[in-house]
Amino acid sequence: MAMLVSSVEEGSLSAAARKMRVPVATLTRNVNDLETLVGTKLLVRTTRKLELTDAGTEYVASARHILEQVDEQERRAAGEFTAPRGELVVTTPVQVARLRVLPVITQFLSLYPEIRIKLVQSDRNVDLVDSRADVAIRIGRLRDSSLVATRVGTLRVVVAASPALLETHGVPKTPEELSDYPCVVFDSPYLAPWRFRNPATGDIFTVADVPRLLVSSPDAAAYAAIDGVGATLVLEHDVADAVNAGKLQFILQEFEVEPIPVNLVHLSQNIMPVKLRRFLDFATPKLRAALADFGRIPSV
């Protein structure tokens, strides 16, 4: 069942084999044996992808539920519901992990020697069920109502530019001017498109940017902005050090949208493992304190 579910989630038998660290032939044989056992075809294999049959769709849904029950019973047997022990899988955006989450995790591990943490860093929202994750730090509005969320803070969305760039190209007075301004764009699911708020009406509007440089990490956006490549729109903590050092300056602050919420989220559970309860109790106040550190820095 686990091999079948993994094949569906990964999109191919070979990808599932790599994830489960077994030979492709072994995984293929086990999936074939499962189809023989249930007496029907579950997967349709093509050269490009795997597709579930109608019977396979229903079977995989049931298999996921059964595997979750097996996992819970194994954790019960290991004592995870009576003592803080076992592996805890935490997912978080890359930059938030480096700046805010890792210090919390290192402190937590020093207090609970029987807990192991697997930190999954991704700027895309990782599905908690598919990834078998226990808890996630999510930036942005939550769409999944099945998750239990605890607000730990907010992050400002800011536009920053180097003093040299502002001296050469002038200081934009309105967001619309950014359309003809050198820009460094961080390709982010929670920052694209560039959004601003009309200070007079409160209406939200977007600006069509033509990036001089398109990057896939906030660090790269900050470095390029410091070097004068262009103005960039990022989260405040991505450029706070550079602003404090005078390498960057905030602009267009009066047009900023409301700060983006940051939440700790986990799946609803009848009985919560002790390791998760301990982590939530420890991390929540620490992250709230860390995210409250930022103060408003004057614009130019």
Rank of each mutant, 00 (worst) to 15 (best):
P103G: 10
T53R: 02
V22N: 06
E258G: 09
L43S: 01
Y181K: 07
K41H: 05
G170M: 10
E236S: 12
D241A: 15
D238I: 00
Q249L: 08
K247M: 12
L235T: 07
L88S: 13
G56F: 05
S145M: 06
W194V: 03
L191R: 02
H266L: 12
A149P: 01
L287N: 04
E9T: 12
F294T: 07
D281K: 14
N198A: 03
D209A: 07
I271G: 03
A200Y: 08
V215Q: 10
A77E: 12
S12A: 10
G11S: 09
R143P: 00
L27K: 09
L119R: 03
D71Q: 11
F250A: 00
A240F: 03
E72I: 15
D134F: 04
M272A: 06
W194R: 06
R98F: 01
V159N: 01
Y59K: 09
S179N: 02
N263T: 11
V262Y: 00
L109G: 03
Q121D: 02
T40P: 06
G246F: 05
G202P: 00
P189I: 15
V5G: 09
N270W: 04
V234H: 05
V129L: 11
L178Q: 06
S7I: 10
Y190F: 14
Q269A: 14
S216H: 13
I115H: 12
D219V: 14
L233E: 01
K275D: 04
L191D: 08
E72P: 00
R138H: 15
A136M: 12
T201K: 03
P211A: 08
I260V: 14
D281N: 09
V8K: 03
K118H: 05
